[in-house]
Simulated assay, not measured.
Amino acid sequence: MYDRERLATLSAVVEEGGFEPAAARLHVTPSAVSQRIKALEQQAGRVLVRRTRPCTATDAGTALLRLARQIAVLEGEVARTFGPATPAHLPIAVNADSVTHWFLDALAPLVAEHDVRLDLHVDDEGHTADLLRDGTVVGAVTTAPEPVQGCAAEPLGAMRYRAVATPEVVARWFDGRDPALAFPAAPRVDFGPKDRLQTRFVEMVTDRPCTGPAHRVPAADGYHAAVRAGLGWGMFTDVPARRETAAGQLVLLGGERYLDVPLYWQHWRLRTTVLDELTASVRRVAARALQQD
């Protein structure tokens, strides 16, 4: 059996990024943290923490880190049953557009009802399941339909995206041109290196690769502002795309063509009040906010 105190120390080192900040969080000395990690590594028979800046878990450490976090969730559930306890740490992975358009509405009732400390990890929806797999988060909004080992998965609906650009960008790059030639060449705005929405849309509409120059703006508000400023064309979710095209601020590209991105909610298979209510709230809000079959 692994010592609960040592597991909690492993979790603190990885979450805080080092031995000294972990010691401050645990109210012990850095030496005590080092001794606990060494004892845990001796018991496991392998290195668990990479002594880098920040400290990270090795593959073996990741397995124990997930165990540590599951124990913390269950202990917190029991502690709250008997009275006031430390706020529950609720790390969740979610894509930026979900945070902007609907996910916070699912979290608000949980925060109002329970003493929880949210820790949102914002990443591309195609990669959020990786954070669930390595034990960093307890739940994730993801495009992965197959449940991660030890997790449950359920469909939420789809986020609908439409290609838009300013009238000036349309006049310069698209007016009077075959979309198969215009889209691959026109400058676009990507959210970041993992963002393939624009590329997927171009391939769907033109059956050609998206080869134009790409500006990267990894911030939700900044991304929208970059498209509105005319840096290039980009993908907006359905509601703002239609609202701003109706106002004449932007122009729809590709006619009524759109790209639907199916989303799934994956979470640990742990039955706790907080996780159960979180899942119910995510399911309820997604049913209103996302495209349903």
Rank of each mutant, 00 (worst) to 15 (best):
I92N: 05
Q70A: 03
E75H: 10
T56Q: 07
S31I: 15
H121S: 07
S34L: 15
D123Y: 10
R117L: 14
R51P: 02
T81V: 11
T62E: 15
G126N: 09
A22S: 11
E75Y: 04
T9H: 07
C55T: 11
L104R: 06
A96P: 04
A44F: 02
R53K: 11
D124H: 15
T86C: 12
V78D: 09
A88N: 13
A85G: 05
I92H: 02
I71A: 12
G17I: 12
A32P: 01
G83K: 06
H89Y: 13
A57E: 02
R53N: 13
L104K: 07
D119W: 09
D97M: 13
H89R: 11
L104H: 04
A22D: 05
H101I: 10
V33W: 11
H114Q: 11
A24V: 08
P21I: 07
R80E: 12
L65P: 00
D124C: 13
R133S: 11
E20F: 05
I37M: 01
D115S: 12
P21R: 02
H27M: 13
L64T: 02
T52K: 15
L26I: 06
Q70E: 08
V94F: 03
V94W: 01
E20Y: 09
V94Q: 01
D134N: 09
N95F: 05
V33H: 05
V99Y: 06
A68L: 03
L48R: 01
A88W: 08
S31Q: 13
A57P: 02
D59T: 14
E125D: 10
R50L: 13
E113P: 11
A68M: 06
F82L: 08
T56D: 09
D115I: 13
A57W: 03
L48H: 05
L74W: 04
R50Q: 07
G45N: 01
L90I: 08
A32W: 04
L90N: 05
V33M: 04
D97G: 13
P30M: 01
A108H: 11
R66T: 10
R46Q: 14
V116K: 06
A85Q: 12
T52R: 13
H121G: 00
G135V: 09
T29F: 03
A44L: 06
T81D: 04
L26K: 10
P87M: 01
T56M: 13
G135N: 15
A39I: 04
T56Y: 02
S31E: 12
P87K: 04
F82P: 00
R133L: 14
G76K: 14
G61F: 05
R117W: 10
D115L: 12
A129Y: 12
I92D: 05
G76W: 15
R117Q: 06
E16M: 14
I92A: 08
S98H: 08
A129S: 08
V47S: 13
P84C: 05
L67Y: 09
G76Y: 09
V94M: 04
E20C: 10
I71H: 14
A22H: 12
D130C: 07
R53L: 09
A32Y: 07
R117F: 01
E75T: 08
A68G: 03
R50H: 14
A57L: 06
A93Q: 02
T29M: 10
D97C: 10
A108R: 11
L107R: 00
V78K: 15
